[in-house]
Amino acid sequence: MESIIKLSNVSKEFKILNRHEGLAGSIRDLFSRDYKIVRAVDNISLDVAQGEIVGFLGPNGAGKSTTIKMMTGVLEPSNGELIINNRIPYKDRTKNSQEIGVVFGQRSQLWWALPLVESFKLLKDIYQISDKDYNDMLELYGSMIDLEPLLHKPVRQMSLGQRTLSDILAAFLHNPKVVFLDEPTIGLDVAMKSKIREMILGLNQKKNTTVILTTHDMGDVDALCHRIVIIDKGRMLYDNDIEHLKKFFGAYRTLKIRLREDTEEAAVKLTKELSDLDIAISNDDTWISILVNEEKTRVIKVLERIQETHSVRDMQLEEISTEDVIKKIYEGGTGFGK
């Protein structure tokens, strides 16, 4: 299939002034040429076909947003070649904008004071959408969600969830080839999250729109992304589907236990007592989760050790969750990636 997005060895460097402290320091800074170079994106290559949904994952500051800003034409790559829809986005920002849609975090791009429908009408003019295409799109939206009450509400009166939903609808309105979504479900409740995921998936399928999204929410990944790209410290650690990733971590199991003592304290104690085993212990209010690599340590053995000193009230054994997989990669303790 023909690729809509193509990155070849793309890097982005920022020049940052080494600032000095105090008044004398800031005067020195005025004339200083003492820069340090920060490599926000380091040699990334990527090929995305029309209609794919690709999830960009990585800790804060990993370079996800910088990569997206390059793809949308806001930033110019320092090195490498970046082609979106047969265009170099930075050189042709205006034309590139015509064929992409962007939702950037919680920064609404809609007119704050206007009812949604008025924003839509302005976008119709700006993107020069024909009456027919516009009406078809609204009809499609209407078939997917309860659009009417949203249309006549000024954006400033909307809840965060409604605003995010509106921004996503606005991004798809001109039927772009690619839509970039930067953390689309951040801060939303469960019901709204699933509504937004359904919406994105539906539009992707009906319009064959390529979707690039960044997220920290593994729910987004599980619901939407066939393919994930993991970036850390500007470098690409992984680019494949999620099943592959889980297979790699196939030997991992999460052992969840509840003890007859305070969970918090017990987790601390266990971490000490089992420090000779190669496991990772975490806890929430009721459960202690122990991530075990079966190839190195057997779950049964871990359980035995725990029972020597603690009384187990309840236990569960789970496959590794997507979240744990990602965490493992960020921690880099597995020798995975580069």
Binding site: K69, T72, G73, V74, R93, T94, K95, S97, Q98, I100, G101, V102, F104, R107, S108, Q109, W111, I126, Y127
Partner: peptide, 19 residues
């Protein structure tokens, strides 16, 4: 937040001041 103005297919200065 200025980044949000950079994604429209029209003149950036116009789009910004017209708001």
């Amino acid at each position: 937040d200025f980044v949000k103005y950079c994604f429209r297919p029209i003149n950036l200065w116009f789009y910004y001041v017209s708001e």
